[in-house]
Design a protein around this nucleic acid. Sequence first.
DNA 1: TTGTAAGCGTTATCAA
DNA 2: TTGATAACGCTTACAA
Lengths: 382, 382
Amino acid sequence: MVERRRTRSTVSIVDVARRAGVSVSTVSRSLRGETNVAAATHERVRRAVDELAYVPSPAAAGLATGRTSSIGVLASFDYRWFLTSVLEGVDSALRAAGYDLLMYNVGDAEARDHFFSSSPMRRRVDGVLAVAAVLTGEEQAVLRKLDVPVVAVNGIRTLLPRVGIDDEAGAAAAVKHLALLGHTDIAMISGNTDALVGTVTPRRAGFEAAVAALGHDTDVIVVDRWGAEGGIQGMDRLLTRSTLPSAIFTESDEMAFGALRSLRRTGVRVPEDVSLIGFDDHELAPALDLTTIAQPAREQGAVAADLLMNMIAGTADTSADIKLPTRLIVRGSTRRHLAAGDTESDEVRHGDFSEQPASSAPSATRSPPSAQSTLARSARGH
Amino acid sequence: MVERRRTRSTVSIVDVARRAGVSVSTVSRSLRGETNVAAATHERVRRAVDELAYVPSPAAAGLATGRTSSIGVLASFDYRWFLTSVLEGVDSALRAAGYDLLMYNVGDAEARDHFFSSSPMRRRVDGVLAVAAVLTGEEQAVLRKLDVPVVAVNGIRTLLPRVGIDDEAGAAAAVKHLALLGHTDIAMISGNTDALVGTVTPRRAGFEAAVAALGHDTDVIVVDRWGAEGGIQGMDRLLTRSTLPSAIFTESDEMAFGALRSLRRTGVRVPEDVSLIGFDDHELAPALDLTTIAQPAREQGAVAADLLMNMIAGTADTSADIKLPTRLIVRGSTRRHLAAGDTESDEVRHGDFSEQPASSAPSATRSPPSAQSTLARSARGH
DNA sequence: TTGTAAGCGTTATCAA
DNA sequence: TTGATAACGCTTACAA
């Protein structure tokens, strides 16, 4: 070695080629699993790669092919439960195919503006997943200019191919559940359409259609806040009335959590005084014993990622609208509606609509232990 | 145009240079904001970029510089609240600096194995953020082999630089709050150290030290499940005792949610019969009226991202251990401990430790409206 | 202050 | 089945 101009620290395909005694093109072919490589050659390459601990440069490959082998996820980071659930599905589908996962937040106005004005995804992704996004026409145009396939996951219906659920049917199932329990006076707490979520209209539409089909009047409280806060707001408004409906459907489980809070604070019992059903099957719904309509979030992510990858490969129709099924999960927040005078039979009915805890938990009729335990504690060995 | 070998569809730096009437190196300098460019030249370049809608190729830049201008986030996607909160901070810090955000899930065993065996981050990131990760020595070694800076966000203490909170102090603050309320018999529901979370030991250690400092015996229930499930499990075990402690501290808010569920199911009232305090200030803690120790999740993400970027730039010490402050948030799940015989004054004390709802919500003493509302409803105009 | 040209590490075309 | 070699689009000495 007479003189080296620059010390190349990383091992490249050239080093592998030299070590294996073949040309770089052969190494490249072998590594990408092309068929026209002799088995023996393939094996020598494999060994050289191992020995040199060679890792291909994605940047170089990207430059040469024009592909990035990564996909971008556009989402509001504040949809915590839904987003992370979807991401689990997306991640597992993507990893299996060797794609990387780039995240972009459009949760608050600042992040959103930054995203749509600077368009940081350009030249960086082969495809885009828009999770629970509500996009203006302008924003959709920006995405289109990326010039890569885009799939919406459970956002509003646009021209984009979409993977989601049948929100109308889910809402109808909630109404049906309540109706079967004898409820006729059912209200819904729904989010304001102006807010940034795509499921407002369909769930409310499904609710209204189902209630109307039963021949009842529709009763929808529209709130302008989302999550538990919105539920509190909506429930507080309901509570200003002189009488409550016997059952309430909320746009989401988180709203139901908030509604539950208001009801407890006011001394209204669930399900004795009012039945409550949510939508989503949020991870905390079991802990709050909430009856709900479950949606398969993780699965939506996996299906959407697969669809997107097929679109990138050119082997998928670009106008899909896949709807995954929802399902009713009956827990303890809904129960049979009692006509006036029936109230004495409350306890008897209670078990009918509650999930039984899997563990041998103390029964609901057990009397609370004393709060005074200092003396008792000293009797425990430790 | 006599003949073109390949149709270059994308506009490159060469096109910009031609249009601006300068060399590519001048364009490159101008674009990267180097100072040795004449103002007039800079302006001509800017205009050419605009007119051609030029977007630099990250792949080409990465190939030339060896930098990727993206950072990788390693996390369990099932820490939904904490992860997304941290990500908000990370994202905002990163975007401002032009970095991209690559996500990698190590939540379940399969994803974890895949990550640590195939090491998909190699050559793809300039730095790594490990969020709430518990890493074996082997796994840390894999990260080290990436040969880029790594910062831990609120995981276990390792040799890695870390941004987190003072869990011990937070736990001590919880104990202090309960002690000031007169509680002497305080139990903790804590997670099993084997599970994949880094905050087990410090929070429990802080609890035990604080309780011991008060001269009381420590009383810790260790459960092997996390989240609400763990809280249910722990509370159910506590409920098998003949007496309950007067106050309970849980390792996390989600555990507190589960504990609350068990208590309600059993008919034990919070805070009348037992006080409950959590840790985190989970987004749903307000809806469950849970007193808790808040940790600044989003801020941890922002600080960690900044630290990481400084490390990448070489302008940061590589042994940081930054602890952000926690703070007590008093809501309605804790109250003054009543000596035997004091029980009649319950209502009087109640307001002392509850957050007042910001809205003009119905007061807690309002009597529940009738569940029969069909008639009333028909009186409303609609 | 600007231009020339040599990399960076792949892929892919074309011959052999 | 394999090998030379020209892109890919940028950065960065070095020269002017």
